[in-house]
Nucleic acid binder design. Structure first.
Lengths: 333, 333
DNA sequence: CGTTTTTGTGCTAACGTTCGCTCAATTTAG
DNA sequence: CTAAATTGAGCGAACGTTAGCACAAAAACG
């Protein structure tokens, strides 16, 4: 690789002069700058960022940790964040955690080792103490889920949303409402609370046998639906409270040829083009992915610029609202 | 940030000893190694990768350039690639190009500047000379599209696929077949060739007024369908030859309440869960995204390990087959 | 017991870039 | 016409890590 040294030799200049010429230092003559630039282009010189970082400069790298980049929500976050930070000359280092705390730890170590300017992460269910310690060394922002011992967080109004969805079903007269979700993540617990609260407020007892708790993935969604419908007295409505669970549930309902909403009403989670086309159209909670990602990106740049570390005293917690989109998959009993 | 120097001072050791202890050098006593490790953990030491890179080591970074990470295909590539390379201790630096050659150039410059171990890219339609020159400095692999002056490429059998799709429609008796695609990318041109060849071989003249060429995005797909259906003698079948165009077309057909396949047969491109649920089910060309991404990742690691540069003499060109999935959106005339 | 080998550690240079300091040459001011 | 200011460029140190060389102490060998 070509270095400034090569350029300096070629022009019989010192490395410092070449360095200054390339960074447009005011005390270098126009003529020298032009000659240096010309030779640099000719030799195909590309600055070594590692050296710059070592001198104490910024790596201009932003770490992004997501469980799975194929998810529409996470890829939207990645896209928007990338757009945001690139406008300021930053770049994205993408790490995929699989929601595994050990993978997460290793990835965070890598990012800190690369001296990233900051980290945006969707934290795993229960990050290691070490992970948290490392995160506290750099500006960072949590998205979606919230670990109290970490800093700023951009989340969604999970409780309100599930409350709305449950109330929608209650107002349609449903009393046997099944709940499919998780208690693994902070969001899962908040959503479940919302469900219980809505039921309690409506004076509707929660049938524990209609509560399916498990990992928020496609497979569990499908299995949960199958189990629920196989019960002696099946639910009249179901709430699927994560994107993947909703997808699995929809596939299962289609496969089992269940009439929606006649046999079962369903409220899904997240938005994708498939939801408008699935069956009678899926009633769903729309995620404010784009807005959330953008505001998160902007805040993040702010955090990096002000060298704001681990949400020092009062972490900034932003809550974006979700909206219930009513389609054909929910009807009165 | 804590450096080995801090650890050395704390233990009254030299930096070299600490450095060797941390890299598990054989000539360091077990006792010293343990003490060093302990203090390192206590102080929260994280190695500075920049320094390591400067010493001539690898950055263990792999650059990935995609037009848009929200696309299912590209995010699948990102996911699989990440899995592949992380198994070998590499990490992904994600860059989004928007298919813009200037953005692309800037991103490649950044990656080379960060001294990435290699680059995987979906090249833009017409990369700058400078971009190509920089790419030639590092091991790199093209995905999907192919720029002849660059190296190895992992693509799909675009011509064969469109040939199959067109023949499927021809066999169903269609003669007025519309084509919606692009001539911007190498893939677009190859696909169009496949269409023309299939028609020619079947002795079916291509009606140029039924050929809609434009950017491969959702908007164009919708507009193209609207234009085609507004013609005095509209097509009986249409071939949409990119993922986004297919999505736009499907949305437009739903919006216009066109009876598929009675009024119009359609063959789409790419696969997504929505396609099985859209209308009567979309007949479509399945992309071998997962396989392609995985084999690309493996080859890439090979290229990095063997320091294989710009496809030196004979670039490796892998062609994965696509398969036509027949669903309800195509029927005989 | 002396010699060779092994073991454990320190010194120092190097990677590529940046930046403070120095200094000569040139220009401007008095 | 001399003194001061400005311009243009070089020297050398520093960033954190690694690795070759050196060297003392300990161990193994004859």
């Amino acid at each position: 690789m070509i270095t400034i040294k090569h350029i300096a030799e070629r022009l019989n200049l010192s490395v410092s002069t070449v360095g200054r010429a390339l960074t447009d230092h005011p005390r270098i003559s126009r003529e020298t700058k032009d000659r240096v630039r010309e030779v640099a282009d000719e030799l195909g010189y590309v600055a070594n960022r590692a050296a710059r970082v070592m001198r104490g400069g910024s790596s201009h790298l932003v770490g992004l940790l997501v469980p799975d980049i194929r998810s529409t929500f996470y890829s939207m976050v990645a896209q928007m964040l990338s757009k945001c930070v690139e406008a300021d000359g930053f770049h994205l280092a993408l790490s995929i955690t699989d929601d595994d705390r050990d993978t997460e730890m290793q990835q965070v170590r890598e990012l800190v080792s690369a001296r990233v300017a900051g980290i945006v992460l969707i934290p795993s269910a229960n990050p290691r103490r070490e992970t948290i310690a490392m995160l506290r060394m750099v500006p960072h922002v949590q998205v979606l889920r919230r670990i109290p011992s970490l800093g700023d967080c951009f989340g969604m109004d999970d409780e309100r949303a599930i409350l709305d969805a449950t109330n929608h079903l209650l107002q349609l007269g449903h009393r046997r409402i099944a709940y499919v979700g998780d208690l693994i993540f902070s969001t899962g617990r908040i959503r479940f609370d919302g469900f219980r609260r809505a039921c309690a407020e409506a004076g509707c007892a929660v049938d524990e046998s209609l509560v399916e708790l498990g990992p928020p993935n496609e497979q569990f969604g499908g299995e949960a639906i199958a189990r629920l419908l196989a019960k002696p007295s099946p639910p009249t409505a179901v709430l699927t409270t994560s994107v993947q669970v909703t997808l699995g549930a929809a596939q299962q309902l289609t496969a089992m040829k269940i009439a929606v909403p006649q046999q079962l009403s369903i409220v899904g989670f997240g938005d994708g083009s498939w939801q408008q086309w699935w069956g009678p159209g899926l009633t769903t909670l729309r995620l404010p992915a784009e807005e959330l990602a953008t505001s998160c990106g902007l805040w993040f740049l702010h955090a990096v610029r002000t060298e704001r570390l681990a949400g020092e005293k009062d972490p900034h917690v932003a809550i974006s609202p979700m909206t219930l989109i009513k389609r054909g998959s929910t009807a009165s009993v």
